[in-house]
Amino acid sequence: MEEKEFILQLLNPKTQNNAFQKLLSDYKRPLYNHIRNIVLDHDDSNDVLQNTFIKVFQNLNKFKGESKLYSWIYRIATNESITFINKKAKLGGTTTSVLKSKMVDNLEADSNFDGNEIQIKLQKAILTLPEKQQLVFKMRYFEEIKYEEMSIILGTSVGALKASYHLAVKKIEILMIKD
C-alpha cells in the first residue's frame, strides 16, 4: 500500500481505526527502542511512547505529507524523549548528563536490562559524548537508521551526521579498551 493511501485511511473516520492499529503494530517496537535509548528507563519509555502515539493520533490531520510518515513519527518521538529527560532532570534539581550517569550506574539492578559487562561499558562510554553525538551514535549503531532518514528526523545534513558518527565511534573505541 502506498504511503499516501495509508495516510488517507488514517484520516478517514471509517478506516481510521484499522489503519491506526496497523501503524501501532508497525511502529511500537522500533519506537520503543528509540525512546528507551534516550530515556534509558522502561517505565519512562512507556510514558513517552504513549505520549508519542497520542500526539501522532491527535495531529494526523496536520501531517502535510511533505516528509515521510516514518520521519514525522520519529521526530515526534525524539522531541518527546528529549523533553521528558530534560524535564525529569530539572525536577530532580540536576543536569541531564548527571541524571543519565546515575541511571547507567544503576543498570545492573534494573530488571528490564539483561546486559553484560561490555554492554554496560558501552553505555558508559556513550555518556561521555556530547548530547547530539550520543543521539546520532545510538540511532546509527543500535537502531541502524539510514543517514538520509536521520537527516530528516534530526534536521541535520547527511555529511554532518556521518562526521558526527565517525567521531563518536573513534571516542568509544578508545574508551572500550580502557579498564
Partner: peptide
C-alpha cells in the same frame, strides 16, 4: 553489541490495549 534493554513479558500487547483505551479505539 546490543543495548541490553528488555521489556516485561507481554508488554507490547498490554501497551496496545492501554493505548486503545486511552484513545477510545478498538
Amino acid at each position: 553489541i546490543t543495548s541490553g534493554f528488555t521489556t516485561p513479558e507481554g508488554y507490547f500487547d498490554q501497551f496496545t490495549i492501554e493505548l486503545n483505551n486511552k484513545l477510545n479505539l478498538t
